[in-house]
Each structure stands twice: as C-alpha cells, then as structure tokens.
Design a binder for these strands. Structure first.
Lengths: 215, 215
DNA sequence: AGGTTTTTATTCGAAATGGTACAAAAATTA
DNA sequence: TAATTTTTGTACCATTTCGAATAAAAACCT
C-alpha cells in the first residue's frame, strides 16, 4: 500500500531542488483511504504516514496539518465522485437504465477497498466530523444537495418526456431516489452483501419506475 | 450537563459501602451523547469523564474500558430506540399514519441534542467504528435488519388489509421505507432543517401510499 | 466507637499524538 | 565543481491519552 520511494520516475521536472519521492495525487488517495476506514480522529498521523509512504514533515509540507489534509481528501473525493456521477447521469437511456447506472456506479465505490464495505466517504468519514467541524458539515451538505439537484433534473426530464405515469410526483421521486443513495452507503458500511444491496436497488427502481421482471 | 455529585438522594440503598455519586443510567446516557457527537475515537476519556461527572476510575469501575463503555452505549441506545419504534409501529391507524408516526419518532431522536442534528447513534457513531471493530458492525447490522423486518411486517399487513393498490410490491416498499429512515439520519446530521426533513418524509409517504393534499 | 466495604479523588506513568527543528540528500543552475 | 534549492530522514518536544495504583471518604454492621 506504500508507493515506492526513492527518485520517482522523472515524470515532470519541477525545477530546482530534490525531486519528490511520491506522487501527490497517489498519496492523497492513500490518505483518503485511511480517513475513509478510520475516520478523522481514528486516523493518526503515523497511520497516514504509513499509508502514504511519506514521513510527517513531507505530509505537512505537501498538505498542511491534519485538518487541511482531511479537507483536501474531501475535495478530491468529491471531484472524483462528481466526474463519475455526471457521466452516469448523462449517458442516456430510459429512466430506469439511468437510475440503475447511477446506483451501481455509486455502489461500486461504496464497496471498494479491502475492508468489506466502506460506504460513501462523505457520509462515513465526513459526517463523523460534521458535528465537530462546521466547515465539514457544510461541505457534506453541499455534496448531498448537488446530488439532489441531479435527481430533480433527471426526474423532471423523465416527466417531460412522458416516461412517468400520469399522476406521478417527480419531485417526490427525486427526493426518494436521492435518499436511497444515502441508504446504500449506510448499509454497505454495515456490511451488507452486494446481493442485498442490489436487491435494495431493484426495490427502489421498481417503486419509482414501476416493476420489471427480474433478469 | 454534569449530574450533581456528593451523596445521591437515598433512592435505593445497596448495602455496605459508600453510595455512588451518580445514577448509572444517567451517566450512560451522557456518555452516549458524547460518543454520538464526537464518535468513538474522537471522544477522550476526559471528555467522557466531564460529560458524566464521573472521574476515570469510577467510569472504569462501572463500565470497564472505553470499548466496553461504547458497547454499553450502543446497547442502551438500541433498547430505547426499540421501545419507541415498537410503540410507533403498533399504535394502529392507516399505513400512512403509521409510517408518519415512525418517521417522526425517529426524526425527533435524530434532531435531539444541542448540536444541530446528530442523526442515528448507530449510524453516526456506530458505523464510524464498523470498519475497525467487527463486533460493532454486527450490532449495527442487526439493528438495521430488525427495523427492516418491522417494515416488512407492516407493509405485508397493509397489503393483507387491502390498503395497497393492486399491483403494489409490499416487499419493495418495505425496503425503501426502511432505507429512507437511514437517509433521514444522514441528512439530519448533515444539518438539514426540520422543514427539509419533513419534506423528505412527505415525499416518501406520497411515493409509498399515494399522494395526499398538504396539511 | 471501631471495623468493613464500596466508592470517590488525587496522582502517577507509559505510550501515543500532533507538530516542528535541523541536518543530510538529491536534484538544478552557474 | 561549487552554490542553490527543494525534499527527505531523524530526532525531538509538549501535550494528550488510556489506564492503574493508592489513599481518602462515606456509608453500613457489630
């Protein structure tokens, strides 16, 4: 889990001094994974140092103190998540296909890693800090609401295209669709199997889009 | 927030030695609140000592080490939550009334305290430890699945009573109903207002039970 | 009153934690 | 080659953390 040290491949020269022994993006990813599993308070600088292969002064020089590192981890996670989600939202197809793609893209991230289900980083690690650090709470809330808006637009477009039954309430559907994404995070971290989580996704799709024969 | 010390009122004599200066149940509640806000790793023994008004040796004598105290906090929370939920599930009324009662009972707990939304203790504090402590993960999973079964029975009974429309899938509805409870926890802790959360509840009820005029 | 028992209060200690100082190392530039 | 610049590695520091040891306090029992 530690990136190899020593002179990194001369990928990009950066001018004068000694070259870095690590790739900042890789290191940030490894620090993120540590926070993801153990939370902010549960991840010591020694843990982070071991995970990234950087010693503490390097960590400090690159990212600032522990809080700053955590914020950098959130920003990086959000950026990645946003990229994947944007793609899933926009790839086209029926409403059901789109929702299914969204849920499975998210679930793939929630089940990634080697600890048996970590959930969403913002929910699992971010919300742990939310009560202690208002700035973290605000970032998490923004992330949630950005997704909310995505679902609202998706459902509104589906309604406009006539994909929804006549009496359907697109706004209500969007709220539930977004909420069930949070539920998947919770339950992935609680250790539910992929089969169980897939069943929850199917139930959500059936309720929103109408039932469909099993595959 | 600290219970008063000194000789407690002679509620129940317990025989020989010096009487306790605290009520174990009250102290456990205060310790639970500390874990709830700050998580397991984020709550130091000093924090817990200050919150309960017990000094460390007393804490240790009463509950064992920090892990044991956390497990005791989970057990107590589950017992309280189960009592409230059982009542909400069984009090009768239409499906919509019952679901509304369940969600609002839970939401009241999720918004309790003076830190602006803490969510469910098991999700907010428990899941933070789930990856680190498999026993905690198992307890949380059990709690979730106990609720799942409650919703399954509730929806199955509603179906049997003919409260659901003909084509409805009671099992899928139960999964979503249970999942949205998790979503409420997440969003309460993210700082959503009661009005926002009520709107999510209403959306869930509308989707499961059919729309209803606003009050 | 004197002894017994249980809890509380003070204190201590070893380890871990977050953060930093400083010199050695590895590159560039002159 | 020598000076410069940036990063690394080691060591250190003050504080916090968890836990335990020990003595004082407050009740009961005889």
């Amino acid at each position: 889990m530690v990136q190899k040290l020593g002179p990194a491949e001369p990928a990009k020269r950066r001018g004068r001094g000694r070259p870095r022994g690590y790739d900042p993006e890789v290191a940030l990813g490894q620090a993120t994974a540590t926070f993801w599993n153990q939370g902010f308070a549960g991840a010591s600088l020694d843990d982070l140092s071991a995970a990234t292969g950087m010693n503490r002064p390097s960590l400090y020089g690159a990212f600032g103190d522990k809080q700053a590192l955590f914020h950098a981890a959130m920003d990086a996670y959000i950026a990645q998540s946003r990229a994947a989600m944007t793609q899933a939202f926009r790839a086209g197809g029926t409403l059901r296909q789109t929702l299914e793609r969204i849920y499975h893209a998210a679930l793939g991230r929630y089940l990634s890693g080697d600890v048996g289900g970590r959930g969403c980083f913002m929910i699992s690690a971010g919300l742990g800090q939310a009560v202690v650090d208002p700035a973290v709470r605000a970032v998490v809330a923004d992330g949630l609401h950005e997704l909310d808006r995505g679902f609202e637009q998706l459902l509104a477009r589906a309604e406009a295209k006539g994909e929804l039954p006549p009496g359907a309430d697109a706004a209500a559907m969007a709220r539930v669709a977004s909420g069930m994404l949070n539920a998947l995070s919770v339950r992935a971290r609680a250790g539910e199997t992929r089969a169980q989580l897939d069943a929850t996704i199917k139930a959500t799709l059936d309720l929103i889009c109408g039932p469909q024969a099993s595959e």
